[in-house]
Nucleic acid binder design. Structure first.
Length: 472
DNA sequence: TCAGAGTCAATAGC
DNA sequence: GCTATTGACTCTGA
């Protein structure tokens, strides 16, 4: 009961969009159109002051699996249909900036991949979508913003006109507050295409470069090491996201007709041949990690249809890297330390390397192999090859998480059936998929167990630097 | 300490 | 003016 109440209150809160802006309509103050500068930091635009903030967190924690792709799709439609901007929506409903909203809408991560914090915007979106009046309210706000803007504009024009006579006024106003900040601000680094290419090539060689490699890269490209580090972080993370979305899209296409419901997706994920295929989460991995087998097709679907974004090059990278690593070419200066260097810090161990972006833990990396491993020698050896070569067999964490994605749905703190029901009705969620997936997941667990064994041995071998013996 | 997740905010492109 | 991209940053967990 408490949950449904909190849900209600939340919904209500969401329904009365942004107090800040509402207040702004009265006092044509600066707030409405000034948000970017000052608002962004402390604002949680959504009327989440005090206890209500807790409510949404509770709600997020308790919420069943949401169809992030479906939600964003609908939000996009609504925004487009009503000519509402991402900025307004983001700042008033989600408490995010335009760029973040754009990113979220364009590349929603699957629910089970999201942290609690990451789920929050989706819960907000869902709540917002639940009440059609919210659209109207947002449109009202837009109108008011416009009015306020016009008012201010007029007033500022007249002000400046009056002040123009006294030039000092202008100078002071400019130098007043914004100036000092500008001086402190670092200019944004914009990497040249060649630099990006070089970094991508380096990434192909080593998605997790050692500090030494980073140094070299930075030197060669004349960049700061922090820039190189950031680039790798960002690239890995974005590659991953690209793959998430491709996975989802591929899934929804193959599910033709069936909605984008979470259940549909999670069942897809649970079906070994398909689900794991998506584990192509790792951009580069698949090419090596899954040379054959049913997933290959899907993987290729996902990869080949990449629209030339960073993911694409990463995919190509995977293939190249595989070949490149085998021939241990030294084309790139920074390739020199290639694989051995993986261990040079004692951090970048082979298993991780083998499943770069997606997998953090060695075990996870190989858990994804279940399919391939049980499907045939070729794939098994391919997997080990990828480990040996230190190349990215990207499929990894993704699949293992998918395996757990079903339980994870229910593993959310939401345990009380009443809560669950109310939430389900709130979110329009169906858990039918869960039961459907259990059989598959048990099979997969067996496979995973098998692989864990292999992984364990691999890790041992890795620690003893007996890579050569990694073939099983 | 490192990597991932999430986000901001500058900027490019339409 | 809007959206997409992306370098940088903060926070968190291992």
């Amino acid at each position: 009961m408490s949950s449904s109440e909190s849900v209600k209150s939340l919904t209500e809160l969401v329904q009365q969009p942004c107090p800040t802006i509402e207040t702004s309509k009265d006092g044509k103050s600066q707030e409405p159109s000034e948000p970017p500068a000052s608002e962004s930091q402390s604002t949680t635009p959504l009327p989440l002051s005090g206890h209500s903030a807790l409510s949404i967190q509770e709600l997020v924690a308790m919420s069943p699996e949401l169809d992030t792709y479906g939600i964003t799709k609908r939000v996009k439609e609504v925004l487009t249909d009503n000519n509402l901007g991402q900025r307004l929506f983001g700042e008033t409903i989600l408490g995010l900036t335009q760029g973040s909203v754009s990113d979220l809408l364009a590349r929603p991560k699957p629910w089970h991949k999201l942290s609690l914090k990451g789920r929050e915007p989706f819960v907000r979106m869902q709540l917002w979508l639940n009440d059609p009046n919210n659209v109207e309210k947002l449109m009202d706000m837009k109108r008011m913003e416009k009015k306020a803007y016009m008012k201010r504009r007029h007033s500022s024009v007249s002000d400046s006109q009056s002040c123009e006579s006294s030039s000092a006024g202008i100078d002071y106003s400019q130098g007043a507050s914004p100036q000092p900040q500008h001086q402190l601000k670092k200019p944004r680094v914009v990497l040249a295409p060649e630099e990006k290419e070089a970094l991508k090539r380096a990434y192909q060689q080593k998605p997790y470069p050692s500090p030494k490699t980073i140094e070299e890269l930075a030197t060669q490209l004349n960049l700061k090491t922090s820039t190189v580090i950031n680039w790798f972080h960002n690239y890995r993370s974005r590659i991953r996201r690209e793959l998430f979305i491709e996975e989802i899209q591929a899934g929804s296409q193959s599910q033709a007709g069936s909605s984008d419901s979470p259940s549909a997706r999670s069942s897809r994920a649970a079906h070994s041949s398909e689900g794991d295929s998506c584990d192509g989460v790792d951009a580069e991995g698949p090419p090596e990690g899954k040379p054959s087998g049913p997933e290959a097709d899907e993987y290729s679907n996902a990869t080949t249809k990449s629209q030339g974004g960073p993911a694409e090059s990463a995919f190509e990278a995977g293939e190249e890297a595989l070949q490149g690593a085998r021939s241990s070419e030294k084309a790139e200066p920074f390739q020199a330390e290639s694989l051995e260097d993986t261990d040079d810090e004692g951090r970048l161990r082979a298993p991780r390397q083998s499943s770069p972006p997606a997998s953090q833990r060695p075990g996870e990396a190989l858990e994804t192999l279940p399919n391939s491993a049980t499907e045939g020698d070729a794939s098994t050896s391919a997997a080990s090859t990828s480990v040996l070569t230190g190349e990215s067999s990207y499929k990894s964490k993704e699949s293992s998480e998918k395996i757990s994605s079903v339980p994870s749905t229910s593993s959310t703190p939401a345990t009380g059936s009443q809560k669950a029901n109310s939430l389900q009705s709130l979110f329009g969620f169906s858990e039918a998929a869960s039961s459907r997936n259990t059989r598959d997941s048990s099979l997969r667990k067996k496979k995973a167990a098998n692989l864990n064994n292999i992984i364990h041995r691999l890790e041992k071998a890795a620690s003893r630097e007996e890579a050569v013996e990694w073939e099983f």
